[in-house]
Every structure is written in C-alpha cells, then in structure tokens.
Lab assay of single mutants.
Amino acid sequence: FEIPDDVPLPAGWEMAKTSSGQRYFLNHIDQTTTWQDPRKAMLSQM
C-alpha cells in the first residue's frame, strides 16, 4: 500500500527520488538506503 507523503518519516530518515522518479529512503542514523518505506513498519506496529 502507498503511504501519503504527509505522513512523517521516523527520526533520522529522508525520502529521495531517483532520476527516473522512483522513491527511496535514506537512513542517516546508520548510513543506509532502502527501497522499503520505513513508515510501513511503523504503521504496522500501531
């Protein structure tokens, strides 16, 4: 499912887009990137 862009990312995360428009996520805390939206895990725990 798609999460609306107005749902905030967890602390330390940033959303970016590739030149082709694909979204990816940067974790500044552990210096990693992922295609997986970290908000999905956050919302599934609620």
Rank of each mutant, 00 (worst) to 15 (best):
F1Y: 03
F1G: 09
F1V: 07
F1M: 14
E2Q: 14
E2T: 11
E2V: 09
I3E: 03
I3F: 15
I3C: 06
I3T: 06
I3G: 00
P4S: 15
P4Q: 08
P4C: 10
P4W: 08
D5M: 08
D5F: 05
D5H: 09
D6M: 08
D6G: 09
D6T: 15
D6P: 02
V7A: 11
V7D: 10
V7M: 14
V7G: 09
V7F: 08
P8M: 04
P8I: 02
L9S: 04
P10S: 03
P10K: 04
P10A: 02
P10N: 02
P10M: 00
P10C: 00
A11H: 14
A11V: 12
G12R: 04
G12Y: 03
G12S: 06
W13V: 06
W13I: 02
W13D: 08
W13E: 04
E14S: 11
M15D: 06
M15V: 13
M15H: 09
M15A: 12
M15F: 07
A16R: 11
A16F: 04
K17D: 13
K17L: 12
K17M: 09
T18L: 09
T18K: 04
S19W: 05
S19C: 06
S19Q: 07
S19T: 11
S20F: 07
S20D: 15
S20C: 13
G21W: 00
G21V: 03
G21L: 02
G21D: 09
Q22M: 10
Q22K: 09
Q22W: 04
Q22T: 07
R23C: 12
R23Q: 14
R23F: 05
Y24G: 01
Y24M: 07
Y24P: 00
F25L: 01
F25M: 02
F25H: 00
L26N: 07
L26F: 04
L26V: 11
L26G: 03
N27L: 00
N27K: 01
N27V: 00
H28D: 03
H28Y: 06
H28R: 09
I29T: 12
I29M: 10
I29H: 15
I29K: 13
D30I: 11
Q31E: 04
Q31I: 00
Q31D: 04
Q31C: 11
Q31M: 11
T32R: 06
T33C: 10
T33S: 04
T33P: 02
T34Q: 08
T34F: 00
T34M: 02
W35I: 01
W35A: 03
W35D: 06
W35T: 10
W35L: 05
Q36Y: 14
Q36W: 10
D37E: 00
D37F: 02
D37C: 00
R39H: 01
R39N: 01
R39A: 01
R39S: 00
K40L: 11
A41Y: 10
A41H: 13
A41Q: 14
A41V: 13
M42A: 14
L43P: 13
L43Y: 07
L43M: 14
L43E: 14
L43V: 14
L43I: 15
S44M: 08
Q45I: 10
Q45G: 11
M46I: 04
